[in-house]
């Protein structure tokens, strides 16, 4: 999409004016409506699907495998596939790195510990099924997808279930392969749902800035005029790394003001609890029956 000069100056002026307004009438901290559901892929331990009104649709599956390793870095694997893009493009690789880094930085690895020697290894596969058609021939980059991907990963991690171990946990003395119960009813959530103070998966927020204003969830038209994008990670009720600047579109980029980073952090602090609780609601509505997934 290329906007006309009059159009982009209209959007920019209304955003940066004293009583700022966004063209779709949202507040600075308001998201567009989303649809999501989880637990529909029968072959995976956790799965989720999310799509928005623009037609961007993402599905994620989390698959667990039992491995005997000491290297924690191997335990989490992230793979992102974008429809119509090669796997080795900068975009794919950067998205993968960012998502993986955000999870690795805050993950509580003892959740994956099975016995003294064995661990669960997680394979998180993200597939972006559909992008609006004018994405390819336009000036905006796809980095704004980051926020949607991370929400999707959050829901699927929250809904991931692991089978119940029936062999002994302590296998240092006796050589024993882990054995699991056949009954899926006994399976447990990877991230325990009941206790309050345990680990929560990280969420990445994408904040766009123009002038002195910071806005959450920029729409495509807004991305055209934004001067900068910042991605921030929210994990365990605070803003953490990776915090990084993103180029949301190649049109109007300017240098980033330091004050805007704190503005962005303030904005994320403001919206994160609501986003988390909305995502948790979806994650708890797991479909009982695999048949009604499609």
């Amino acid at each position: 999409m290329v906007l006309s000069v009059a159009e982009s100056s209209y959007i920019y002026d209304s955003l940066t004016s004293s009583n700022s307004s966004r063209i779709d009438a949202r507040k600075a901290n308001q998201y567009r409506p989303l649809n999501a559901n989880c637990g529909f892929l029968p072959n995976s331990n956790g799965s989720s699907r999310i799509y928005n009104a623009d037609g961007i649709e993402i599905i994620t599956s989390v698959k667990a495998k039992v491995v005997r390793t000491e290297r924690i870095a191997d335990l989490i694997n992230v793979d992102i596939d974008i429809h119509g893009e090669k796997d080795n493009t900068t975009l794919c690789q950067q998205l993968t790195t960012l998502i993986k880094a955000s999870i690795m930085d805050s993950f509580q690895f003892d959740l994956l510990k099975l016995t003294g020697k064995y661990y669960f290894q997680l394979f998180i596969d993200v597939s972006i099924l559909y992008l609006p058609e004018d994405f390819s021939a336009s000036s905006y980059t796809l980095y704004s997808l980051l926020s949607l991907i991370s929400m999707n990963v959050y829901i699927s991690l929250k809904s991931t279930k692991l089978p119940f171990l029936i062999s002994s946990k302590d296998d240092f003395d006796v050589e024993e392969e882990p054995t699991f119960s056949d009954d899926w009813e006994l399976s447990k959530f990877l991230i325990p749902q009941d206790s309050k103070n345990t680990f929560q998966p990280p969420l990445i927020f994408v904040v766009g800035t123009a002038g002195e204003k910071a806005i959450i969830d920029p729409s495509l038209e807004e991305e055209e005029i934004l001067e900068h994008g910042i991605c921030l990670t929210w994990s365990n009720s605070k803003v953490t790394t990776p915090i990084q600047s993103l180029t949301l579109s190649t049109n109007n980029t300017k240098a980033l003001k330091l004050s805007l980073i704190s503005e962005a952090i303030k904005l994320v602090k403001n919206v994160a609890p609501d986003v988390i609780s909305a995502l948790d609601t979806i994650a708890s509505q797991e479909s009982d029956d695999f048949n009604n997934g499609f």
Binding site: N35, N270, D274, S287, N292
Partner: peptide, 18 residues
């Protein structure tokens, strides 16, 4: 005023199937 709204599109279909 909530900041975000996420809907589960499957809930209505479940009822129909019953």
């Amino acid at each position: 005023m909530s900041v975000i709204s996420i809907k589960n599109p499957l809930k209505s279909t479940v009822i129909e199937e019953n």
